[in-house]
Simulated scan of single mutants.
Amino acid sequence: MDGKILARIGAIFFVTFAVTATAIELARKDEPSIYRSIAAPAEAAADPLKAELRRCQRLGEAGTSDSGCLQTWAENRDRFLAPSQPIQPQPAPQAPGPQGTPLNPPQQREPVVETPAPATDSHTNEAR
Protein backbone atom coordinates (compact mmCIF):
# COMPACT_ATOMS: atom_id res chain seq x y z
CA MET A 1 0.00 0.00 0.00
CA ASP A 2 1.21 3.32 -0.75
CA GLY A 3 1.12 6.42 1.49
CA LYS A 4 -1.65 8.23 -0.41
CA ILE A 5 -4.13 5.37 -0.05
CA LEU A 6 -3.29 4.99 3.66
CA ALA A 7 -3.82 8.74 4.19
CA ARG A 8 -7.20 8.61 2.40
CA ILE A 9 -8.36 5.65 4.52
CA GLY A 10 -7.30 7.53 7.69
CA ALA A 11 -9.15 10.68 6.56
CA ILE A 12 -12.31 8.71 5.78
CA PHE A 13 -12.12 7.01 9.18
CA PHE A 14 -11.66 10.38 10.95
CA VAL A 15 -14.58 12.03 9.12
CA THR A 16 -16.84 9.03 9.82
CA PHE A 17 -15.95 9.17 13.51
CA ALA A 18 -16.57 12.93 13.71
CA VAL A 19 -19.98 12.66 11.98
CA THR A 20 -21.04 9.80 14.30
CA ALA A 21 -19.98 11.69 17.45
CA THR A 22 -21.85 14.79 16.29
CA ALA A 23 -25.02 12.82 15.56
CA ILE A 24 -24.92 11.18 18.98
CA GLU A 25 -24.43 14.52 20.73
CA LEU A 26 -27.30 16.14 18.83
CA ALA A 27 -29.62 13.22 19.60
CA ARG A 28 -29.05 13.53 23.36
CA LYS A 29 -31.92 14.88 25.42
CA ASP A 30 -31.21 17.48 28.03
CA GLU A 31 -31.62 15.88 31.45
CA PRO A 32 -32.49 17.97 34.46
CA SER A 33 -29.60 18.59 36.79
CA ILE A 34 -29.38 16.26 39.75
CA TYR A 35 -27.74 19.00 41.82
CA ARG A 36 -29.86 21.46 43.72
CA SER A 37 -29.18 25.13 43.69
CA ILE A 38 -27.58 26.76 46.69
CA ALA A 39 -30.54 29.03 47.33
CA ALA A 40 -31.51 29.48 50.97
CA PRO A 41 -34.32 27.15 52.03
CA ALA A 42 -37.66 28.64 52.95
CA GLU A 43 -37.49 27.26 56.49
CA ALA A 44 -34.51 29.50 57.28
CA ALA A 45 -36.79 32.52 57.14
CA ALA A 46 -39.07 30.95 59.75
CA ASP A 47 -36.22 30.39 62.24
CA PRO A 48 -34.45 33.67 63.06
CA LEU A 49 -31.45 31.82 64.53
CA LYS A 50 -30.89 29.97 61.24
CA ALA A 51 -31.25 33.18 59.27
CA GLU A 52 -28.66 34.88 61.47
CA LEU A 53 -26.32 31.90 61.18
CA ARG A 54 -26.60 32.09 57.38
CA ARG A 55 -25.78 35.80 57.50
CA CYS A 56 -22.71 35.10 59.62
CA GLN A 57 -21.71 32.32 57.23
CA ARG A 58 -21.82 34.75 54.31
CA LEU A 59 -19.62 37.20 56.24
CA GLY A 60 -16.84 34.65 56.31
CA GLU A 61 -13.79 35.65 58.31
CA ALA A 62 -15.29 39.05 59.11
CA GLY A 63 -17.91 37.23 61.20
CA THR A 64 -15.31 36.52 63.90
CA SER A 65 -15.21 40.22 64.78
CA ASP A 66 -18.98 40.81 64.50
CA SER A 67 -20.57 40.88 67.98
CA GLY A 68 -23.93 39.70 66.60
CA CYS A 69 -22.32 36.64 65.04
CA LEU A 70 -20.40 35.83 68.22
CA GLN A 71 -23.64 35.99 70.22
CA THR A 72 -25.48 33.87 67.64
CA TRP A 73 -22.76 31.22 67.64
CA ALA A 74 -22.80 31.11 71.45
CA GLU A 75 -26.58 30.67 71.42
CA ASN A 76 -26.30 27.91 68.82
CA ARG A 77 -23.63 26.10 70.89
CA ASP A 78 -25.77 26.37 74.00
CA ARG A 79 -28.74 25.00 72.10
CA PHE A 80 -26.92 21.80 71.25
CA LEU A 81 -24.27 21.36 73.94
CA ALA A 82 -25.86 22.65 77.13
CA PRO A 83 -28.23 20.17 78.76
CA SER A 84 -31.70 21.50 79.51
CA GLN A 85 -31.59 20.07 83.04
CA PRO A 86 -28.52 19.00 84.96
CA ILE A 87 -28.17 15.24 85.08
CA GLN A 88 -27.85 13.93 88.62
CA PRO A 89 -27.08 10.27 89.26
CA GLN A 90 -29.70 8.55 91.38
CA PRO A 91 -29.03 5.38 93.35
CA ALA A 92 -30.81 2.28 92.18
CA PRO A 93 -33.59 1.24 94.55
CA GLN A 94 -33.07 -2.08 96.30
CA ALA A 95 -35.95 -4.26 97.37
CA PRO A 96 -35.75 -5.65 100.88
CA GLY A 97 -35.02 -9.32 101.29
CA PRO A 98 -36.74 -11.83 103.57
CA GLN A 99 -35.52 -10.25 106.82
CA GLY A 100 -35.11 -6.62 105.71
CA THR A 101 -31.74 -7.15 104.00
CA PRO A 102 -31.28 -6.09 100.38
CA LEU A 103 -31.64 -8.82 97.77
CA ASN A 104 -28.59 -7.69 95.86
CA PRO A 105 -25.98 -6.67 98.43
CA PRO A 106 -22.78 -5.19 97.05
CA GLN A 107 -20.34 -7.95 96.31
CA GLN A 108 -16.73 -7.86 97.39
CA ARG A 109 -14.22 -8.89 94.79
CA GLU A 110 -11.19 -10.87 95.76
CA PRO A 111 -7.90 -9.32 94.68
CA VAL A 112 -6.35 -10.95 91.66
CA VAL A 113 -2.95 -12.35 92.49
CA GLU A 114 -0.81 -13.39 89.59
CA THR A 115 1.70 -16.08 90.27
CA PRO A 116 4.91 -15.71 88.31
CA ALA A 117 5.73 -18.46 85.83
CA PRO A 118 8.56 -20.74 86.96
CA ALA A 119 11.90 -19.70 85.62
CA THR A 120 13.27 -22.11 83.06
CA ASP A 121 16.88 -22.55 82.31
CA SER A 122 17.45 -22.04 78.60
CA HIS A 123 20.32 -24.52 78.66
CA THR A 124 18.25 -27.47 79.92
CA ASN A 125 16.38 -27.96 76.66
CA GLU A 126 19.37 -27.72 74.38
CA ALA A 127 20.62 -30.82 72.65
CA ARG A 128 24.13 -31.73 73.72
Rank of each mutant, 00 (worst) to 15 (best):
P83W: 04
A27F: 12
P93C: 04
A45N: 05
T101F: 14
V19S: 06
A23C: 02
P106M: 02
T72S: 05
I87D: 12
P96N: 03
E75C: 00
P111I: 00
N125R: 13
E43F: 05
E61G: 08
L26A: 10
E52L: 03
Q85C: 09
E75V: 01
Q88M: 13
P118W: 01
L103H: 04
G63S: 13
A40I: 14
A39I: 10
R28M: 08
Q108K: 10
Q94I: 02
S33D: 07
A11Y: 04
Q108P: 12
T16K: 01
A74G: 08
A51M: 07
P91M: 03
Q99M: 05
Q71C: 01
P98V: 07
P86Y: 04
I34A: 10
I34W: 11
R79M: 01
I12R: 04
E25G: 14
C56Y: 00
F13P: 01
A42E: 15
S65N: 10
P116I: 04
S37G: 14
L103Y: 03
S33M: 02
I5T: 13
A62C: 04
G100E: 00
D78I: 00
A39N: 11
R28G: 09
T72N: 02
S65F: 14
D66F: 00
N104D: 13
A42I: 14
A51H: 06
D2Y: 02
A45E: 11
R55L: 03
S65T: 11
P91T: 05
R128G: 12
K50C: 12
K4Q: 15
A119N: 12
L53A: 02
S67Q: 12
L6K: 11
E126C: 07
Q108H: 09
G60A: 00
T16V: 06
P116E: 04
L26D: 05
Q88V: 14
E52Y: 01
D2E: 12
Q57H: 15
D121S: 03
C69L: 00
R58N: 09
I34L: 13
G97M: 00
R109K: 13
R77G: 03
A82I: 09
Q99R: 11
Q94Y: 02
K50E: 15
P89M: 04
G60H: 00
L103F: 05
P93N: 06
R36G: 10
L81Y: 09
G10D: 11
R128D: 15
P116W: 00
V19G: 01
N76W: 12
A23Y: 07
Q90P: 03
E31F: 04
V19N: 02
R55I: 00
Q99L: 08
I38R: 14
A40G: 06
F17M: 10
A42R: 13
G63A: 15
A39W: 14
S67C: 05
N104A: 10
V113F: 11
T22F: 07
Y35W: 08
K4F: 10
L26Y: 03
N125D: 09
V113N: 13
P118A: 07
G3N: 11
A18C: 13
F13G: 10
A127R: 14
E31M: 11
S67P: 15
A7M: 07
R8W: 10
T22E: 07
P102G: 00
T115P: 11
Q57T: 14
S122T: 08
Q71Y: 06
P41F: 02
S65L: 12
N125V: 07
Y35Q: 05
R8E: 06
S84R: 15
G3H: 15
Q85L: 13
A21M: 08
A42Q: 12
F14D: 05
G60L: 00
